[in-house]
């Protein structure tokens, strides 16, 4: 076993262990933190594969974005020190079965699939190459998915604004009522 292998197994163990911890812990905030470690482990595997750009994007998007979002929603809804209720045994068994089925499906797919070796030369992942590939319209270019995703994001943004605006109308009169009451007291 070379040093490189050792590092891979270390990273893989890290991912799996924290993924398991993340679903088994009863502290919701800890679950988010374990998820964070799993995601960092995956970023580590990308680094190990020398896909630095994807690794960095993984950290920016998942760690800096998604996990922070999850933590914020925990802040707004949960209370420190509280544990989630224990799950019932039948639920646990059902969840385990589903997970196993999914895992088996994936493994079967992987083993049945014949991976073809390509003779295309991989591009060197410099920013310039990635940028050109991302906006290329010829075969192997990613312009279409890139634009589709950006439309999706735009839709999500507009949706957020709409939700935020609607909620505000409901809350505002309530606050005014409160201040009126206080005026009466003072």
């Amino acid at each position: 076993m070379t040093g490189s292998d050792i590092i891979f197994y270390l990273l893989a163990t890290l991912c799996v262990v924290f993924a398991l911890l993340s679903v088994t812990t009863r502290h919701i905030f800890r679950a988010a933190i374990y998820l964070l470690f799993t995601l960092i482990g995956i970023a580590g595997i990308y680094f190990w594969l020398q896909y630095e750009f994807i690794a960095a994007v993984q950290i920016v998007v998942y760690v800096g974005g998604i996990v922070v979002l999850i933590i914020f929603s925990i802040f707004l809804t949960q209370q420190t020190g509280e544990q989630l209720p224990k799950q019932k045994l039948d639920r646990k068994i059902f969840a385990a079965l589903v997970v196993f089925a999914g895992f088996a499906l994936t493994m079967v797919q992987i083993y049945q699939h014949t991976f073809i070796e390509t003779d295309e030369i991989a591009i060197t992942p410099t920013v310039e190459n990635i940028g050109k590939k991302m906006l290329a319209v010829d075969s192997g270019g990613y312009a279409l998915p890139f634009e589709v995703i950006s439309i999706l994001l735009l839709a999500a943004l507009i949706g957020c604004i709409v939700i935020a605006l609607r909620e505000k109308k409901n809350i505002e009169p309530q606050i005014q009522d409160d201040t009126e009451e206080h005026k009466g007291i003072v």
């Binding site: 707004l76 809804t77 949960q78 809350i171």
Partner: peptide
């Protein structure tokens, strides 16, 4: 917006 979010403080 921020105030609205914070409003949901426990």
């Amino acid at each position: 917006g921020f105030g609205e979010v914070l409003k949901m403080y426990r």
